[in-house]
Design a binder for these strands. Structure first.
Lengths: 229, 229
DNA sequence: TTGAAAAAATGACCTTTATCATATTTCAAA
DNA sequence: TTTGAAATATGATAAAGGTCATTTTTTCAA
C-alpha cells in the first residue's frame, strides 16, 4: 500500500530515476526538475492520458505500473507495453508533435511525477547524454515492436502467450504476474476465453501455478521452448 | 531503367534529399557528406544488410525501393516497412548499438548511398535540426508500429489487406502497386494463397484492377471503408 | 521462339481460434 | 455475513484462414 498522502517525491533520492533515462542528470538539473515537476498519487485504473489528446509533458513512474494501449475499432484494447518503476511514459508523441495514438492507465496504485514539455525539451537540448539515451531508447523500442509485429503475424496464440509471459516475468521480477485475464488477453492479442483455456493447458503441463488471478511461472525453460527461441 | 554506370550521385542536386531528413543540411555539411559517402547501384533483390550483422552506417535511397523485414522461425518473412526515394534506412539499430534485428533488400533496381556511422553521428551532434528530425521520425514510426500491432491483433486479413493497400498507394503514388504476391502476403501477414483469394474478391468487387502482378486501385473509398477508417 | 523454372491461381480439407451462451467463483460494499 | 456485480471458467458451435496438392500462367534465359 502506497502512502497516499505522500505529496512530494524527491528526485535526488528517487530509486526509479537511478536506472532510468534521467540517471545522467547532474545535481543542478536534478534540482531544477525537482522544483518544477508535479507529483501525483494515482489509484488503480486511473488514466494518465487518452488517445487523441495532446502531450504536455512526460510522466516518470516513481512507483507502480502503467499499461500503454490502443483501442481498436470495436473498443477492444491492444496493450502495446507495460511500464514500471523508473520508466518514462508519454514522450513519443511529444516529439512527433501529434496527438497521442495510445492511451496510458495505471494497473495498480502508483506514484507518478510529471515534467512539462518545455522543461524536458530544455534538458534534452543541454544534456547530450540524456538526448542520446532517448534516441537509443526509441530505437530499442522500434526493434521490440518489429518483433511484436512478426510474432503477431506468424505465431500461434499459444506461442504468443509464452512469449508474453517471458516479457511479464521481466516486468514482475520475483513477484507473481498480477494482471486481469482480460488485460493478459489484450496483451497477447486474443480473446479472453481463448487465453483462459491456454492458461489451463499451461497449468496442466506444470508450466505455471495459479492463485486466483496471480500467475507464477514454474518452468521458464518450457516457456522459452514454446515461445520459439 | 536506371543508369548502371552512374557511379556518383551529387548530394546537392539529389531529388530525394530535399524532402528527407537530410534536407536541413547546410552547404558545408552537404559538401562533406558528398565527399565522404559511397554510391552504389543495386540490382533487384539485392541485400543492404542482414539480420544479426552490425550497423556501420546509414543508407540513403536516391532512387528505388527497399523492403525492411524480419524472418520468423520458419523462415517466412514479415515485411515491417517499405522505404523509397528520399528515405534513410538502417539508422535505428545504429543508435541502439545492437545488431540489426531486421534485414533490408531492394525490391527493384536502386541507387543507394552510404554514410558511415562516424560521419553521421558527427553531423547529428553538430546539427540540432537533423537531430530533432531523427527523434521526430523515430517517434512517428513508433506510433505507426503501434497501429500495425493493433491491426494485426484485431483485424481480419481482408481488413488488413485494405489497410496495407492504402499504405502502398502512398508509396507507389500514381504508379500501380508492383509487388510479388508473396511480398504482399508477407506485408499483410497472411498466407500467399489467402492473399490471392482476397485479391480476387477485391477484383470482383471492382476495388482493384490487376494486370499480371501489377495492381491498380479503382476505388480508394471502398478500401478505406473495409480497412475501418 | 521455346522450354524450364518461378510465380500465381484454384480446390479440398482441416486446424485454430473467435463467438455466444451459460455457469461458477471471487471480491468488495452494504 | 450477505449479496450483487464483476471476473473467471467452461461448453458448443461456427467461421476464418492455414496447409497441401495440383493446375495454370508468366517470366526469362538459352
Amino acid at each position: 500500500m502506497l502512502e497516499k498522502s505522500h505529496k512530494h517525491i524527491t528526485c535526488s533520492t528517487c530509486v526509479g530515476r537511478k536506472n532510468s533515462l534521467l540517471g545522467s542528470l547532474c545535481h543542478d538539473e536534478i534540482d531544477h526538475v525537482n522544483a518544477h515537476k508535479a507529483c501525483n498519487y494515482y489509484k488503480k485504473h486511473q488514466s494518465l492520458f487518452l488517445e487523441g489528446s495532446f502531450p504536455r509533458g512526460v510522466f516518470c513512474i516513481n512507483e507502480g505500473m502503467v499499461k500503454i494501449f490502443q483501442r481498436g475499432d470495436e473498443g477492444k484494447e491492444q496493450i502495446i507495453h507495460i511500464a514500471k518503476t523508473g520508466e518514462m511514459v508519454g514522450f513519443r508523441s511529444m516529439f512527433s508533435e501529434t496527438p497521442y495514438r495510445v492511451a496510458a492507465e495505471t494497473l495498480e496504485e502508483s506514484n507518478i511525477c510529471f515534467i512539462s514539455k518545455e522543461d524536458f525539451l530544455n534538458m534534452m537540448d543541454s544534456n547530450p547524454v540524456l538526448r542520446n539515451g532517448i534516441i537509443k531508447e526509441l530505437s530499442r523500442e522500434l526493434s521490440d515492436r518489429a518483433d511484436f509485429i512478426t510474432n503477431m503475424a506468424q505465431k500461434s496464440v499459444r506461442e504468443r502467450l509464452a512469449f508474453t509471459m517471458i516479457i511479464l516475468l521481466d516486468i514482475y521480477e520475483k513477484e507473481p504476474i498480477n494482471l486481469s485475464r482480460e488485460d493478459l488477453a489484450n496483451f497477447v492479442g486474443t480473446a479472453t476465453e481463448t487465453l483462459i483455456r491456454l492458461l489451463k493447458d499451461f497449468k496442466e503441463e506444470g508450466i505455471i501455478e495459479v492463485h486466483t488471478r496471480k500467475i507464477s511461472v514454474l518452468n521458464k525453460e518450457k516457456l522459452f521452448a514454446i515461445a520459439g527461441k
